[in-house]
Structure formats: C-alpha cells, structure tokens
C-alpha cells in the first residue's frame, strides 16, 4: 500500500508517496535526484550508499524509504551549504581519492567520526572508515587527509 512520507532531505522538507518495498537508496537517487550515494554491493558490505539519518551513517541500500518518515536524512550534497567543508578541502589537497566512487560514503563516515571525536587517533580513523571499501587508494591518503585537519 502506497503511503505518504514526510522527511527532511539535506534540510529540505520532502513529502513523497512511496511503496513499502522501495529502498531508500533508490528513492534518493531515482526519485529525488540525490546521486551522491551509490550502489556498490546492494547488501551493506561496501558503504558507497552511506547517508546519514539523524546524524548517524547508515547503509541506505538496507533501509526502506518508508522508514525515514519523520526523520532527517543528509547526503553528501547536504554537507555543502557553505561550500566545501574543511574535510573535503583536505581530501582535495591530499589527492585522497582516485576513481572517487567511494568518496561520498567515505566523506560521510569521516564527518560522523569528527562530529563525535574531534581528535581521533589513526586507529580510530581506520575503524570509522572500515565499512567504506575503497579499491584504488590503499586508504592511506584518505587517512592522512583526516589526520591533517585534526592535528
């Protein structure tokens, strides 16, 4: 049964009818045009579909869209109200990403970490990113960029 849901998407109030079997990732991408979360594995293993719900990162491929009724959803697009964040700038400076496909999810995971812990050590950074797979970089330049702005 189709139901109307209301939620905030990166600050914007959204009202949308969804079927219960619609997945959040697909609704965000295909119906609302927020393309930064990507589908990499479709079962929660790779982290490219990461978005935030109420400030916490989730796998949007494992969330039903109908579940976000009344919640606040933020995608990478929603972090940039006042331009690139210091974290994003640091990633550019460090040439952190290669193909860039994992970047949106990685950035959201790092953002969540820094919101909780402004001075994470290297191990804490590694742990926070460990659900976001990257095949290009070996992670080191990503970790370096986060360390650079938290030192």
């Amino acid at each position: 049964m189709r139901q109307e849901i209301k939620f905030k998407l990166s600050g914007e109030a959204i009202a949308l009818e969804v079927n219960p079997n619609e997945v959040l990732l697909e609704v965000l991408r295909d119906r609302l045009g927020a393309k930064s979360p990507k589908c990499g594995c479709d079962k929660g293993d790779c982290g490219t579909c990461t978005v935030m719900i109420n400030g916490k990162t989730v796998r949007s491929c494992l969330v039903l869209a109908i579940e976000v009724d009344g919640q606040e959803v933020v995608t990478l697009e929603g972090l940039m109200d006042s331009g690139l964040t210091p974290l994003q700038k640091s990633f550019i400076e460090h040439n952190s990403f290669q193909c860039g496909f994992c970047a949106p999810g990685m950035i959201l995971s790092a953002t969540e970490l820094l919101a909780k812990n402004q001075k994470p050590n290297k191990h804490e950074i590694q742990e926070a990113l460990s659900g976001n797979l990257c095949r290009c970089t070996g992670y080191t330049p990503i970790i370096d960029a986060i360390e650079a702005i938290t030192k």
């Binding site: 989730v58 796998r59 494992l62 969330v63 995971s109």
Partner: peptide, 12 residues
C-alpha cells in the same frame, strides 16, 4: 559490539 560489522551497520 566493537567487532560487529562496521559503524554504518552498527548504527542500525
């Protein structure tokens, strides 16, 4: 809990 999956899964 720290060994269960990763942050984005543990949050749910």
């Amino acid at each position: 809990a720290k060994t269960v999956a990763s942050v984005g899964i543990r949050n749910r």
